[in-house]
Amino acid sequence: EKTLKIVADSEEEAEALAKELAEKYNLEVTIERNPEEEGKYVITIKIKP
């Protein structure tokens, strides 16, 4: 299993990107607040072998 993390500037941007990735590529995608940067969100994508 591989994990890729993407940082987005807004929750709306994160949700839109996560939804597109999940639907288009059938990936497991989660969104959470970035504890290191206020106002940023981390999109985590898990790629199963």
Rank of each mutant, 00 (worst) to 15 (best):
E1M: 14
E1C: 15
E1F: 05
E1K: 08
K2Y: 04
K2I: 14
K2R: 10
K2W: 08
K2T: 14
T3C: 13
T3I: 11
T3Y: 12
T3P: 07
L4H: 07
L4T: 04
L4F: 15
K5T: 15
K5V: 13
K5Q: 10
K5A: 05
I6A: 02
I6D: 00
I6H: 03
I6T: 01
V7H: 15
V7E: 11
V7P: 12
V7K: 13
V7L: 10
A8K: 08
A8Y: 03
A8M: 14
A8T: 09
A8W: 02
D9Y: 14
D9N: 13
D9V: 04
D9M: 05
S10W: 01
E11L: 14
E11C: 08
E12D: 07
E12Y: 07
E13Y: 06
E13K: 07
E13I: 09
E13F: 06
E13S: 07
E13C: 12
E13W: 07
A14P: 00
A14G: 02
A14T: 01
A14V: 02
A14L: 02
A14Q: 00
E15W: 15
E15T: 13
E15R: 15
E15Y: 15
A16E: 06
A16L: 10
A16F: 09
A16N: 08
A16M: 09
A16S: 07
A16C: 11
L17K: 05
L17P: 00
A18W: 05
A18Y: 06
A18R: 07
K19G: 03
K19P: 00
K19N: 06
K19H: 06
K19F: 07
E20V: 14
E20T: 14
E20R: 15
L21G: 00
L21Q: 01
L21N: 01
A22I: 11
A22M: 13
A22F: 11
E23P: 01
E23A: 14
E23T: 12
K24T: 06
K24V: 08
K24Y: 06
K24G: 03
Y25K: 01
Y25Q: 02
Y25C: 08
Y25H: 03
N26Q: 11
L27N: 04
L27A: 12
E28V: 13
E28Q: 11
E28P: 14
V29N: 01
V29Q: 00
V29A: 07
V29S: 04
V29I: 08
T30L: 08
T30H: 08
T30M: 08
T30I: 09
T30C: 07
I31H: 01
I31R: 01
I31V: 11
I31W: 15
E32T: 12
E32P: 00
R33I: 10
R33V: 09
R33W: 05
R33D: 04
R33L: 08
N34V: 12
N34F: 09
N34E: 07
N34M: 13
P35C: 08
P35W: 10
E36Y: 13
E36K: 12
E36Q: 10
E36C: 12
E36R: 10
E36S: 12
E36W: 12
E37P: 06
E37R: 08
E37M: 12
E37S: 09
E37L: 12
E37Q: 10
E37V: 10
E38M: 10
E38F: 12
E38T: 13
G39W: 07
G39F: 06
G39K: 04
G39H: 06
G39Y: 05
G39L: 03
K40F: 04
K40T: 11
K40A: 05
K40G: 08
K40P: 03
Y41H: 02
Y41A: 01
Y41Q: 01
V42T: 07
V42Q: 03
I43F: 03
T44Q: 04
I45Q: 01
I45H: 01
I45L: 13
K46M: 10
K46I: 12
K46Q: 08
I47F: 15
I47E: 04
I47M: 09
I47R: 05
I47G: 04
I47C: 13
I47A: 05
K48A: 09
K48G: 09
K48P: 13
P49I: 12
P49N: 13
P49D: 09
P49V: 13
